[in-house]
Design a binder for these strands. Structure first.
Lengths: 239, 239
DNA sequence: CAGTGGTCTAGACCACCCT
DNA sequence: GGGTGGTCTAGACCACTGG
């Protein structure tokens, strides 16, 4: 019965067709799209196949289906944005990206670290400090804190170049489950300015990450100071 | 044949079951989950129903299915984060949130505005400046620029309280399609400090938004300066 | 009531991977 | 070839909406 007219799945073809109508403005937000039965006839496919296509569109935020009423073109949500935060994506785009391991030691947790990691004050904590640079010089300093677990050797290359969540996952035996990021502005302290070869007082972004395992247990804390003149954060609304 | 044992759909039950196994650690990232045929037998449902459930899990990032090989528990992606950026969500949580319209005028576009909005220098542009406060005082200043379209009246309440994408959509007749946000650090200028009742030099976040219509045409530019001591941006890894 | 989306089946076939 | 995911059907039934 069906034509198998293209190499693409039928449900995909249906979805793409409707998506194009929306993108071209033939269908506007709020408009009702034809019923699944109509679409099934129109495309010569079964009810299920149409629904598969519509679910795809709903997943991508193009339409919204309401039982008993119909399916409607959705207005794109622009208040939930996608933020890609991984060093390789952010800094790696520039040639000459490199990481320098400037500190690696086991220290007793002070009050702040203990609070962030949910451990007792004085507990052993692994501290890693890195300097991230591109061809134009240092861009960011990064301090990472992990609860110390003896007998989990880490290669220096891993420590320097692994993304934080990956490092945490490899160090602890736990599966990381959540990453919470917090961005605030600051100005470079004298020490930071020295490390970043900039003047003290330069505006900078402070990006904190806390990695959680199951049951909201924090297993890693990272604080990154990024030169404001060389770095901005970007986020884009979902497709 | 099937038991209809619960009020929830069968595919949902399958998905939830597997999700729980993952959350409890019975299935670890990289593990293969039983084949669709096995699951179908196990749950007494059809192949299609199982697949529906697995697609749900895949959508939420719990598993990854590979044709010819199997379905595998995915390790949560923690480098793509979700950022909720809407004034009501960010500031509205605090009681006493209010907006003061401090400026509303039609001006000719200078070089910067023209560039951001993709219009010719000198073209008429609607400029809106607002001050956002909570019960403790001013938190942010917001400057919004829209290409001026005559004959599109806006209510003052709308101008003050509408989220930027909504305002843009209402003002132009176009459907907004994309929102690109850029975050950088800055320090308060004398003028900004005055408006925000803070000292000049205080670290602040500069949050720019550009709203696009179809074909990447910018139709709105917003620049928000947020006091760093009263405001931080948060983002969380999906889901 | 008729029309809508949502669920489900039993079986078919395809595409792909591995051995 | 045997196992895996992926697509599709034709028809059934359910849940919900609105006149």
């Amino acid at each position: 019965m069906r034509a198998r007219s293209s190499f693409l799945p039928a449900y995909y073809r249906v979805a793409e067709d409707i998506k194009n109508k929306i993108d071209r403005g033939e269908l506007k937000p709020g408009d009702m799209i034809p019923s699944t039965a109509q679409l099934a006839r129109q495309y010569g496919v079964s009810h299920m196949t149409v629904r598969h296509g519509l679910e795809l569109l709903a997943k991508d935020g193009y339409i919204e289906s309401i039982q008993g009423k119909g399916s409607f073109v959705a207005s794109p949500r622009m208040d939930t944005l996608l933020l890609e935060f991984s060093e390789n994506k952010i800094f790696g785009k520039n040639k000459g990206f490199r990481v320098q391991l400037s500190e690696l030691e086991i220290i007793p947790a002070d009050a702040k670290i203990a609070h962030k990691l949910g451990v007792k004050e004085g507990n052993k904590v692994l501290k890693i400090r890195r300097i991230l640079s591109d061809e134009k010089g240092p861009v960011a300093v990064d301090s990472r804190f992990l609860p110390y677990v003896k007998g989990t050797p880490l290669l220096e290359k891993e420590i320097a170049y692994a993304a934080f969540p990956d490092l945490v996952a490899r160090h602890t035996e736990l599966v990381s489950v959540k990453n919470v990021l917090e961005v605030s502005p600051c100005i470079l302290s004298k020490e930071e300015a020295e490390l970043l070869e900039a003047r003290a007082g330069l505006p900078a972004l402070c990006i904190e990450q806390i990695i959680y395992a199951a049951k909201n247990r924090p297993i890693g804390w990272s604080k990154m100071i990024c030169r404001g003149d060389r770095f901005t954060l970007k986020a884009v609304s979902q497709p």
